[in-house]
Amino acid sequence: MEYIRVTKDNLEEEHICCAISNNKDVQVSSKKAWLADRFDEGLVFLKSAERGKCFIEYIPAESAWVPIEADGYMYIDCLWVSGSFKGHGYSTELLDACIADSKEKGRKGLCILSSAKKKPFLADPKFLKYKGFEVCDEADNGIQLWYLPFDEKAVKPAFKECAKHPHIDEKGYVLYYTNQCPFNAKYVPVLEETAKKNNIPFKAIKIQSIDEAQNAPTPITTYSFFCDGEYVTNEQMNDKKFLKLIGK
């Protein structure tokens, strides 16, 4: 497989895999704007030259938009291979490229979010275990932090306390999200409009800085849905899924 590294220089010309459309699409424009601000922080976006969901996105953990303590590690935002690309070893190729790059940059290892059982939009725990990753921390809601150290003596990454015990004081339905996931630009407004039409108490909180992200009340900052203060899901929803979830 031929891979292309997306940079500031080619960002406008290249598709970004997770949202394949033209640059005028709100999902594409929001994701590309988010990426553009992260490249100077060390973010790498490596993708298949072919159009489709086959890519890896990673960044030094100190600059990751997640509430973790993982100085010296590389954090994988997303490793996504799906559709016709599955079953050809591309996930391994992308991960190997990340490992090689991280070692060259003097990183201590890799870390990534997952769970005991596969959840939507999170890394597959079976694949991680097969590749030598181990669980190094777990939040109360079952979200796990996995790591692959390059040195056995390296200190294990860990969740910050705010993320280890996901809870908020607000009542009603509250969604925390970022533009790291392009789908949010399309579907968060759908939820807001659906809630308004159905008189549902709903509030969407957009995380807009690394400081907000690293001190968020949830291990998953891309999309975390709460009900009366308790964490519910990280799965993006359209209007029908939203109404079904809340029993409307």
Rank of each mutant, 00 (worst) to 15 (best):
V190W: 00
K108E: 15
G172C: 09
S115I: 00
S82G: 11
K203L: 08
A33R: 10
K105P: 00
Y75K: 14
D140E: 15
K103A: 10
D101S: 13
D40G: 03
K248C: 05
D77T: 12
P201T: 03
H167G: 05
I143G: 05
Y73C: 13
C181A: 14
D169T: 12
K126E: 15
V44R: 08
A213F: 01
K103I: 13
L110R: 12
F127D: 10
G87D: 11
T7V: 03
Y231V: 04
K8H: 10
C227W: 09
D77E: 15
T218R: 02
E212N: 02
H88Q: 15
A123Y: 03
K129H: 10
Q27A: 14
N10E: 04
N179T: 09
E93N: 13
A163K: 01
R107E: 13
N23E: 12
D151V: 01
E212H: 04
Q180F: 06
E41N: 08
K86C: 15
L35C: 04
F150E: 02
K119H: 13
C162P: 03
L175G: 00
C98N: 02
K241V: 00
A213G: 04
P166T: 11
E170L: 10
F242C: 00
D239C: 06
Y176I: 01
S114I: 08
G72E: 13
F183L: 04
E161K: 12
D9V: 05
K117I: 15
H88S: 11
P120K: 07
I220F: 12
Y177Q: 04
I246K: 02
K108P: 11
A70G: 14
K24F: 02
Q208V: 06
L122E: 13
V28I: 08
F150Q: 01
A123Q: 15
N10A: 06
I207V: 11
A204L: 05
V174G: 02
K186W: 02
F225Q: 05
S30D: 02
E41C: 05
L191I: 04
G106P: 05
P125D: 10
Q144K: 08
K156G: 03
L35D: 01
E161R: 07
L191Y: 00
C227Q: 15
R107T: 07
K160D: 06
E138R: 07
F45N: 00
I4G: 00
G52L: 13
S82E: 14
F159W: 08
A185Y: 07
G142C: 03
D124P: 10
P219G: 12
W80N: 09
D228H: 15
A185M: 08
L148I: 02
E161P: 04
V188I: 12
R51I: 10
N215K: 07
K186H: 10
T92Y: 12
K248Q: 06
P219S: 13
D169A: 14
K8D: 10
